[in-house]
């Protein structure tokens, strides 16, 4: 049976593999192998596979290039769109109160542009979906790890947007 420490190990392994840009399908394979091996041998996953970070590094090295270039370009564009969106949104909101325009546009138009860029940017950023080879589906036991990953990624985006807003306000 998979015990709580094994689950924690696997959560950390998934995050470590995601951070190194290992494709989701491969992550599913790696995780399923760890689960199967630990279930059969009764070993502690840390003893059998080493630290999650180190094990993830071994796979990332074997796979080579992290995240294919088109995927990376998409992600950079998505994050840039989010940042620009944050700026338009912040300026738009501020100037709605002061009744000024943004580059000759009504302040509300700037708000709409900001929201559109934010949403578009978020949709552009590619999600690396983990596929369990045993079911061909996204495993529900990964939800916790996925949530943690989402919180980390979400915080990064929010931080970026906040920085864009601060810069936007400072430039006012």
């Amino acid at each position: 049976m998979t015990t709580a420490p094994a689950e924690r190990y696997i959560d950390n392994l998934i995050i470590a593999l995601q951070l190194r840009g290992v494709p989701g399908e491969k992550i599913g394979q790696i995780v399923a192998e760890v689960e199967a091996h630990v279930a059969e041998s009764g070993e502690d996953p840390g003893d059998a596979f080493g630290k999650p970070r180190e094990y993830a590094r071994t796979w990332a090295r074997d796979i080579g290039r992290p995240v294919n270039s088109p995927g990376r370009i998409r992600n950079v564009l998505g994050i840039a769109a989010c940042a620009a969106g944050g700026w338009f949104l912040a300026i738009g909101v501020l100037r709605t109160f002061t009744d000024e325009t943004v580059w000759g546009l009504h302040a509300l138009v700037s708000v709409v542009i900001g929201v559109a860029l934010l949403v578009g940017g978020l949709l552009t950023v590619q999600k690396n979906v983990v596929i369990d080879p045993r079911t061909g589906l996204e495993p529900h036991r990964l939800k916790r790890a996925a949530r943690r990953g989402f919180v980390i990624a979400g915080s990064a985006v929010l931080l970026f947007v906040a920085a864009a807003i601060v810069i936007g306000v400072a430039l006012e």
């Binding site: 003893d47 059998a48 080493g50 094990y55 071994t58």
Partner: peptide
């Protein structure tokens, strides 16, 4: 041979 060594070899 630990799992951490064996499985990447199988993958390769």
């Amino acid at each position: 041979i630990k799992g951490g060594t064996l499985y990447p070899i199988l993958g390769r």
